[in-house]
């Protein structure tokens, strides 16, 4: 869930205008992210108080990655696909990654926590904010420190009489370390993750079609002005959090005694 809105600063003229058609689909502006509740097993060390960041705030090359599957012969509409995807988002992820859906579900402004792993087996605690959600699509935006800076849009639409499900990532690695990680196997891991997710979604509708991938480098330039993002690297902070767990345990024990 997010806090504070600039809508309060609307002009008198704007206040009397009807709500825009897309008004209910967007998260409201908040300076920083706020997690409404932490589910059992989740860790909220890299999300609370962070800013949401888009592809313009990252460090690495900008990529647009599109993964899509045709739900051929499945009697399902785009609206039904997105409803199912929102409700079962966690279940469609491959093993090894956990998505702790917000209590309110995938609705604009809600924040979800994620436990995953990086190349090399480093455990990662991070999250995402629901930036946008309507009946035929939804988008997640990443916080500072996440492996990439950007958003993922999940959508479904009709194409030549067939319903198609698509995930599209627009991203830059958040800092130099993540950029190296992405080049050394991270991109492959990510592509595999979304391929598997779409396969699982298709299998839910009884479809076994190949997932098409289209990977485009939108901007090969590195944004060196953003190298300091590394201070918020969620992988490093998650590793430190794990290493220092015995110290926290001893401190808590001492307080109880």
């Amino acid at each position: 869930m997010t806090e504070q809105t600039p809508q309060d600063e609307m002009s008198e003229e704007e206040k009397h205008k009807p709500e825009p058609r897309d008004g209910a689909y967007w998260a409201r502006y908040a300076e920083t992210l706020k997690v409404a509740g932490v589910a059992e097993g989740a860790t909220n060390i890299n999300v609370e108080g962070r800013r949401a960041v888009g592809p313009l705030q990252g460090f690495g090359k900008m990529w647009q990655k599109t993964y899509r599957v045709s739900l051929k012969d499945a009697d399902v509409t785009p609206v039904e696909v997105i409803k199912t995807w929102k409700e079962n988002y966690r279940d469609f992820w491959p093993e090894g990654n956990l998505f702790y859906a917000p209590l309110a579900g995938i609705t604009p402004g809600e924040v979800a926590l994620i436990s995953g792993s990086l190349p090399g087996g480093v455990k990662l605690s991070t999250g995402v904010m629901v930036l946008y959600a309507d009946d035929e699509s939804f988008s997640l935006m990443t916080p500072e420190g996440h492996p990439f800076s950007g958003w993922i849009t999940f959508s479904s639409f009709e194409e030549e009489g067939t319903t198609v499900a698509q995930a599209q990532v627009l991203m830059r690695a958040n800092d130099p370390l993540y950029e190296i990680g992405l080049r050394m196997g991270g991109h492959k891991m990510e592509n595999e993750m979304w391929r598997k997710t779409l396969e699982n979604l298709a299998a839910h509708f009884g479809v076994n079609e190949p997932v098409e991938m289209n990977l485009v480098c939108v901007d090969p330039k590195l944004q060196w002005s953003h190298y300091r993002n590394i201070w918020q690297n969620a992988g490093i902070r998650s590793a430190l959090y794990t290493i220092t767990a015995p110290l926290r345990w001893r401190r808590n024990r001492a307080r109880q005694d």
Binding site: M10, E14, W26, A52, G54, L56, L131, W151
Partner: peptide, 27 residues
């Protein structure tokens, strides 16, 4: 940017200005 041009906008309603802010396009 690749063409060394600049992008400017005008006429955004408060609603769309807010979306530019949340997505950080206004940066």
């Amino acid at each position: 940017n690749r063409e060394k041009q600049r992008l400017l906008t005008y006429g955004l309603s408060d609603h769309y200005k807010s979306i530019f802010q949340i997505t950080r396009l206004d940066d």
